[in-house]
């Protein structure tokens, strides 16, 4: 049967929540969701992990999603864009997801820490600065959202995928 896809809906729910809190427009919310989905799905299908942790946060200027997994070291910044630019008749599948993740976000950070891959995907919040008026650059009420531990509040409780999915690898190469 079709492998379960629990990570996609979790990403969608997390980003929906973040976008609502941050007032992200539809396009930015979509890009953050897509990039996070690609990184998380990549860890499951190619990293062969049974656990992907997701959390998110926001401050005055940015909204982010952190994807963590315990797959072998994989730095998503090392993808090869040539893979994507090749004629689709000739190229091997794969590489598209990482390309979309890179293209969609304003910042992509990676670190290997405590034997885990930690990828952070960042979208900049749209701050209207009409004519350089600094007083209107930060909407009222933003301050209360800019708590450093916002990410903890937004952690997805069901962060562990069911053990049955462990070790399954995608066929995408």
């Amino acid at each position: 049967m079709t492998p379960a896809d629990p990570v996609g809906p979790r990403v969608a729910a997390l980003v929906r929540d973040l976008a609502a809190r941050a007032g992200l427009d539809r396009a930015r919310a979509y890009r953050l969701r897509l990039a996070s989905d690609e990184i998380a799905t990549n860890a499951v299908t190619h990293g062969g992990v049974d656990t992907v942790s997701l959390c998110g946060g926001l401050d005055d200027t940015r909204v982010w999603v952190v994807v963590e997994d315990n797959a072998p070291p994989f730095d998503p910044r090392t993808y090869d864009p040539e893979v994507v630019l090749t004629d689709p008749h000739e190229r091997e599948p794969g590489g598209l997801g990482l390309f979309l993740a890179h293209s969609g976000v304003d910042e992509l950070h990676y670190e290997r820490t405590a034997n885990r891959n930690r990828t952070t995907l960042v979208i900049h919040r749209e701050l209207s600065v009409p004519g350089g008026n600094p007083e209107s650059s930060v909407p009222d009420g933003t301050a209360e959202l800019s708590v450093p531990d916002a990410s903890a509040e937004l952690s997805v409780p069901g962060g562990t995928m069911e053990p049955g999915a462990g070790g399954r690898r995608g066929t995408g190469g």
Binding site: G8, Y30, R33, L34, D37, E38, T41, P88, H89, P93, L96, G97, F99, L100, G172
Partner: peptide
């Protein structure tokens, strides 16, 4: 409403 790389690969698959 949503198209990820996995979906895009299906379109590439169709093309191929």
């Amino acid at each position: 409403t949503y198209l990820s790389s996995a979906g895009l690969r299906s379109l590439v698959f169709a093309h191929q």
